[in-house]
């Protein structure tokens, strides 16, 4: 039972980490607190479901279609809807407040479209659902695969941000947007890039989650809230912080649900969040952007 809880905790935590990495990129670099983050994730989940059930496209191949599409859509959202806010905001704090209001509205628009298309019912599909035994515990193959993909995507993002010049420029905008133009970085273009990357990440998470969780059109908010908690726990703009905090949250939720009471899952989430806010308000690893 312990190993089973451990593996499903890691899978869940890996998903949280991936979703939160997307949010922390958007918030840390572009200063957009995107409350519609989870909606994009669920939209990606529905896209994977639709591709799988009506076009028989395997969700892993679906990633190749859905992730670039999400990148393009997020980039377009930034250019059309958020750039006017960026232009008129006198400073980044004002942009933060404006972006919360704008994306709060966007949340309902995306959610409404999905409700019209799919209704409020829960959906799932069966892909690689056969059991695999590791260290005495049985896990569905699709969960393991989701974890592996999350790890690869997270690692690729980390290497991109730390080992390439463009990635370093993205981090430079996160830590000091005022100074970035001094080295010929176009801050607005970099912010748009980071926002698009954030959308691509959360869409990848949506596809992976759709392989093993049931979901409906209303559930995005839950993931946005958890991603927010993970981002704040790990330290804003800090990718490694996202990874660790995401795993902690996933493991804590699963262990409490397995060994104490499944009804206490949400309570555990917020208890952890409160403890970290009280003890280390700057997050586990400090913020990289303030």
């Amino acid at each position: 039972m312990f190993t089973a809880a451990l593996t499903s905790g890691l899978v869940l935590g890996g998903m949280y980490a991936l979703i939160a990495m997307g949010l922390t990129l958007q918030y840390g670099v572009a200063r957009i607190m995107n409350l519609a983050h989870g909606e994009l994730m669920i939209a990606a989940a529905f896209a994977a479901l639709w591709l799988f059930t009506s076009a028989a496209v395997n969700p892993l191949l679906g990633l190749l279609i859905i992730v670039p599409a999400a990148f393009a859509i997020s980039g377009t959202i930034y250019r059309l809807l958020l750039t006017p806010l960026v232009r008129r905001a006198p400073n980044r704090d004002a942009l933060e407040v404006d972006s919360i209001l704008a994306t709060f509205g966007m949340l309902f628009v995306i959610q409404g479209i999905m409700l019209v298309m799919f209704g409020g019912a829960y959906f799932s599909y069966s892909f690689l659902a056969f059991p695999v035994t590791i260290a005495g515990a049985t896990v569905a193959a699709n969960r393991l695969l989701a974890l592996a993909f999350a790890a690869v995507i997270g690692l690729a993002l980390y290497l991109y941000l730390t080992r390439t010049r463009l990635g370093t420029a993205v981090r430079a905008v996160a830590v000091d947007p005022q100074s970035a133009p001094l080295v010929a970085i176009d801050v607005r273009a970099t912010a748009a890039l980071a926002f698009a990357f954030g959308g691509a990440l959360v869409a990848a998470a949506g596809v992976l989650v759709s392989m093993f969780l049931t979901f409906n059109a209303n559930i995005g908010v839950v993931f946005t809230m958890k991603a927010l908690i993970v981002v704040i726990m790990g330290g804003v703009g800090n990718l490694l912080g996202c990874l660790v905090a995401g795993l902690i949250l996933g493991l804590a939720e699963t262990f409490v649900a397995t060994f104490v009471d499944p009804g206490l899952t949400l309570a555990t989430t917020y208890a952890l969040f409160l403890i970290i806010l009280l003890v280390r308000p700057q997050g586990l690893f400090g913020t990289a952007s303030r």
């Binding site: 010049r165 370093t168 981090r171 430079a172 830590v175 000091d176 100074s179 080295v183 970085i185």
Partner: peptide, 13 residues
């Protein structure tokens, strides 16, 4: 300067 980044990263930027 970008205080959170290393000397090498600052020079690369």
């Amino acid at each position: 300067v970008f205080g959170e980044l290393t000397v090498r990263e600052n020079l690369e930027l």
